[in-house]
Amino acid sequence: MIERPLDLDAVQAFIHIAELGSFTRAAEAMRTTQAAVSLKLKRLEDRLGCRLIERTPRSVELSARGAGFLEQARALLEAHDRALAVFAGARRRLTIGISDHVAGPELPALIARMNAQDPQLLIEIRIGSSGDLLQSYDRRELDTVIVRLHAGRNDGELLAEEPFGWFAGPGWRHRPDEPLPVATLAEPCGVRVMAGRILDAAGVPWTEIFVGGGVTAVAAAVMAGLGVSALAPRMLPFGAVDVGARLKLPDLPRLPVLLHSRVKDGRSRDALAALAAAFKSAAARG
């Protein structure tokens, strides 16, 4: 018979480790240290009398008992949050801007992560170019933005540095006697400007063949065989091919992703920390 109640912080630590696959990311999500997260997990495992996480130098995986406990752990925290919601006042609101070059296929999972961290938080997300979002942030129209590094800005928290490449559809071939056809985002777009400057510096003739209002549209043009585009592999549909080496195109740099935030409220900051940690994990896998 279990006598002592479970430590909810320890249960939360276990869930973060299991879902993010990393003690480091779990610590970032909880705004604490890796040592503190490890201690919370140990106390929980001691309390339950079994190992929940199998940890090696290269991987973090659920044990069989941990996999069985995960859904129960989630349900426990959800019940706790519902109980607290009875006494909560008006819903808090968090308005986040995310660059279209950053908001990849993981976005639904990232939103779910924030909701799980704080179900009573009203989340509003706007997608746009990094430049436009930073202007809105500076006008205090957004609480937080996640954007590519922008010229003239050296503030913000570094979340990741993502690789970029020249991608095309699987059957696309370039005619050597024609300028390189490039699919880009509409202005203003820092990646568009960067790619054009790098091609010009390398003396590669090019022309815009397609201008899209979002990365999804540009990726669709690439897969339709219109031309190439400078994109992060994480953003690509299955089947896209890196043609940079074959066409002897100049290398593209890794581009930083930065978090800018003025959020002060503790619970909102916890939800934002969970979002940042989840994004880092997604970018590392991509």
Rank of each mutant, 00 (worst) to 15 (best):
L247I: 13
I209D: 06
E208F: 01
G225N: 05
L199T: 05
V215D: 04
L236C: 05
P233R: 13
A240Y: 08
T207M: 08
A245I: 11
G212H: 05
P256N: 14
P256V: 14
R246Y: 09
V228M: 06
L249P: 04
F210H: 07
A219Q: 13
A221I: 00
V257E: 12
V218E: 06
K248T: 10
D200F: 03
V228D: 08
G244H: 12
G213Q: 06
M223D: 01
V241A: 07
A230Y: 07
L231S: 00
V204W: 09
I209F: 01
D251R: 08
L249C: 10
L255V: 15
V204F: 08
E208C: 03
G212C: 06
A202C: 00
F238K: 12
L259V: 14
F210K: 01
E208L: 02
L199K: 01
T216F: 05
T207P: 01
L247D: 13
G203N: 03
A217C: 01
A224V: 06
A201R: 12
L259N: 15
G213F: 02
V222L: 14
P256F: 13
D242A: 09
W206F: 08
A202R: 01
G244W: 06
L226M: 12
A201W: 00
V222I: 15
L252Q: 10
G214A: 14
L258Y: 15
V218A: 10
L236P: 02
R197H: 07
R234I: 12
L226T: 10
A232V: 07
V228G: 06
E208V: 09
A245R: 15
D242R: 04
P237K: 00
M223C: 01
P233D: 10
G196E: 04
L255K: 14
V243A: 06
A230R: 10
P250C: 12
V222T: 09
I198L: 15
V215A: 12
I209N: 03
P233F: 08
L258G: 15
